[in-house]
Amino acid sequence: MNISIKLFAGFRQNRFKMEEREIPENSTIIDVLNQLGINEPELGVAMIDGRHVTTDHVLQTGVTISLFPKVGGG
């Protein structure tokens, strides 16, 4: 199935800002991280449609996921 991935901050280095990817049915956020070569502890926040999701979240076809490393400000 097809999903879109948006990357932010340091995750963009040597990768991309936004891409469409073909992934197997029932993939989770962890599977996507693995595909991208990102270690799970590096992940700060994953969001779908502006909602936080956990790494075991099972992805539906057509979704856009946004992945952020651990960042902050204030």
Binding site: F8, G10, K70, G73
Partner: peptide
């Protein structure tokens, strides 16, 4: 995060 991007990463 803060030294590279500053607070504007938000």
């Amino acid at each position: 995060g803060l030294p590279i991007y500053g607070t504007n990463i938000l």
